[in-house]
């Protein structure tokens, strides 16, 4: 299949008081007509990659091509073939929904008549027809994102960049937006999506790259990535830190990864959830350990990270959190709920 996006050893450093290596040799390939997910925590380099690919900033080193056009040398050609919707919902609050789309249409140099029909079409398609003539100030967060996406699509771009399209949205709006994005892919648009949510990447993307500190640390289909780290997380809450340590030892044989103790909570990623749950419960029962909670859940980005790097996503300071061995003492004060901030 031909490549819509090719990125080779991209590097970018931001100067200033604290120099930041935002990208440290990122390479990736996106096939035409597919959704590619860039998954990573804040500051991992996702947005910088998108800004380079959309010609907003220039890389320090490396090459990036969109539909065979170099993003630096043929920037204007690239711009006429792409759409960008960002996490900050870049729409003008003082204009109406319709005026926003028309403005972007005119700036895309579409004929006046096309601009007007496209605006009506898109507002309809995104459920904004009734709000079309209201200023964006009166829109909800979900409506703004939809309008932002609609504006990005006005020129029917063959390649679409979505930078954290659903960050900060409520579950209903997120679901609505996912459906819209799935619809686009059905029409053959190539999408590069950045996200912090494993669930989002899993649902939308056919290929994933996990980025961390400006590097791609893992790449593959959602299925292969999940297989690498176990498909389900078994989470057991215990009454004390001591019983948690005991439990971690008892659950050691369950999964491909060693159990992780986080305060009084033990987490272990497993391949077969129900089977692991039954084995685990039997083993706890045999040693007279009574858990306070016992849950199976989908892994979050946090879990992926832990599996790939041994670190949590927001762990720059939380060095105490280590995967626990048999005599594991990797205990962190339970001041933070496990997986906080991730959608379930």
């Amino acid at each position: 299949m031909p490549h819509a996006i090719e990125v080779e050893s991209l590097e970018k450093t931001f100067g200033g008081k604290h120099e930041v290596h935002a990208l440290d040799g990122v390479s990736l390939v996106v096939e035409e007509g597919t959704v590619f997910g860039l998954l990573g925590p804040n500051g991992s380099g996702k947005t910088t990659t998108v800004r380079i690919l959309t010609t907003i900033i220039k890389p320090d080193a490396g090459v990036a091509r969109v539909l065979d056009h170099d993003v630096v040398r043929d920037a204007s050609l690239v711009r006429s073939r792409i759409g960008l919707a960002g996490q900050y919902a870049a729409v003008d609050e003082n204009l109406t929904g319709k005026e926003n789309i028309q403005m972007v249409g005119h700036l895309n140099h579409l004929p006046r008549r096309t601009v007007n029909t496209r605006a009506t079409e898109l507002l309809q398609q995104f459920g904004l027809a009734e709000a079309a003539n209201r200023t964006v100030k009166t829109y909800s967060g979900g409506m703004r994102r939809r309008l932002d996406l609609a504006a990005a699509l006005v020129g029917r771009p063959p390649v679409l960049f979505l930078d954290e399209p659903t960050t900060g949205l409520d579950p209903q709006s997120r679901n609505d937006l996912w459906e819209v994005i799935e619809g686009l892919v059905g029409e053959g648009t190539t999408v590069l999506l950045t996200t912090q949510y494993l669930e989002e990447a899993d649902r939308l993307a056919s290929t994933l790259a996990v980025v961390d500190r400006g590097h791609v640390i893992a790449e593959g289909t959602p299925a292969t990535l999940k297989a690498q780290m176990g498909t389900t997380v078994l989470e057991v809450g215990l009454p004390s830190i001591e019983t948690a340590a005991t439990t971690a030892r008892l659950l050691e044989d369950l999964g491909p990864h060693t159990p992780v103790v986080n305060g009084t909570v033990v987490e272990v990623t497993v391949d077969n959830g129900p089977e692991a749950a039954m084995t685990g419960l039997r083993s706890l029962d045999a040693h007279a350990v009574v858990p306070t909670t016992f849950t199976l859940r989908e892994p979050s980005l946090d879990d992926v990270f832990l599996a790939l790097t041994g670190r949590r996503t927001e762990d720059e300071e939380a060095v105490g959190l280590l995967p626990t061995g048999p005599s594991g003492t990797g205990v962190l004060p339970a001041d933070r709920p496990v997986g906080a901030g991730e959608p379930r």
Binding site: R51, T54, T55, I56, S76, R79, S80, I82, L84, G86, Y88, A89, A90, V91, D92, E93, V104, L107, N108, H109, A151
Partner: peptide
């Protein structure tokens, strides 16, 4: 601040506009 300039920069519009 609101990201509108970012959007403009990714559009095929005249830089000076």
């Amino acid at each position: 601040q609101k990201g509108l300039i970012e959007r403009f920069r990714a559009l095929p519009m005249a830089r000076s506009a």
